[in-house]
Design a protein around this nucleic acid. Structure first.
Lengths: 171, 171
DNA sequence: TATTGTTATACTCTATAACTATA
DNA sequence: TATAGTTATAGAGTATAACAATA
């Protein structure tokens, strides 16, 4: 008999949450569980992006942003969306441009700024990758009960608002 | 008027979730929101560990594991709990040992294996760090409604079980 | 044969700061 | 003065594989 359907508490697979899980405050337990979930899924996505599409999560993220911004985005916009520094965006953009996946056009109005957008080839690639990505997520999350999906979406919305208001902005 | 209390949807602070958030499947939206939350908090913790305690998250994690395992843990156990490879555990353990925060004792029963445990100094340090960490988490999460806390803990438990059963084991 | 741990390696990712060009 | 972007750098993080010693 598989233990796939057993509640997590009974599987006893160790992870970060196992530490002090009995001792900790409820808030701490919640955070460790959130972190464990996020790490599990993120690790899988990084791995599949690497193996199946020979790319990385930040590269994927940047291209997805552009996919949903048909008129293009500036480096600073990308920096804000991806919550990393300008310098790091530059590094990724240079790679992608060299590989012919994105292009850079000068903003006529503000000559400091340049707009990034997908090339035809880049658009083809990111669409394929995004489709894969959606499938991975579907296959993982479609086992969640309707109720948990709703509860999580709402609860995480609340948490995100909190984090946004209580944590200092970065990047 | 501050917008701190406004629901996330009305704050319009861009992040990864902003991409395709209107287009995507509910599962995808949920995942992007989960990732955004986790990244926000994790980034803050990394930053504070670095600034206030001059350490890193993996170092902290390893020491917390030892704090809750008074009889010590083997490298392989740590590797499983932290979900990273043996080689990476070795690298961190070498640092911590050099700084006198942990010690290594040979396992008499299995001479391949060695037990890691905290030194007195290491124990003092990790207790201070763990107290800080708890405080950060408290200050962030204590704004969550009771209901959301419960819903999140339950929902994430369900998700973690799913991930555990559907994703290949790593490390 | 499998497991524990070490070593080596290569790359990606991140944070920071100094710098330029333009606004 | 402030913002957009570049460049450089150092350290952290991750993944992989080859290896020795022991089980």
């Amino acid at each position: 008999m598989s233990h796939a359907a057993l509640p997590d508490e009974m599987q006893n697979i160790p992870d970060l949450e196992s530490r002090g899980v009995s001792q900790g405050h409820p808030h701490l337990r919640l955070w460790l569980r959130l972190l464990a979930c996020s790490n599990l899924v993120e690790r899988e996505i990084r791995s599949r992006l690497r193996i199946e599409h020979e790319t990385t999560l930040p590269r994927f993220d940047l291209m997805v942003q552009l996919l949903y911004a048909p008129t293009g985005m500036s480096m600073s916009e990308l920096s804000r969306h991806m919550m990393v520094s300008n310098g790091n965006i530059t590094a990724i953009a240079v790679q992608l441009e060299k590989e012919g996946l994105i292009r850079r056009t000068q903003d006529a109005a503000d000559r400091r700024s340049s707009l990034l957008s997908l090339t035809a080839s880049g658009r083809r690639q990111i669409k394929k990758m995004a489709a894969s990505h959606d499938l991975w997520i579907q296959n993982l999350f479609n086992g969640l009960s309707e109720k948990s999906q709703k509860n999580l979406y709402t609860g995480l919305g609340e948490l995100k608002g909190l984090a946004r208001s209580r944590l200092p902005p970065r990047a």
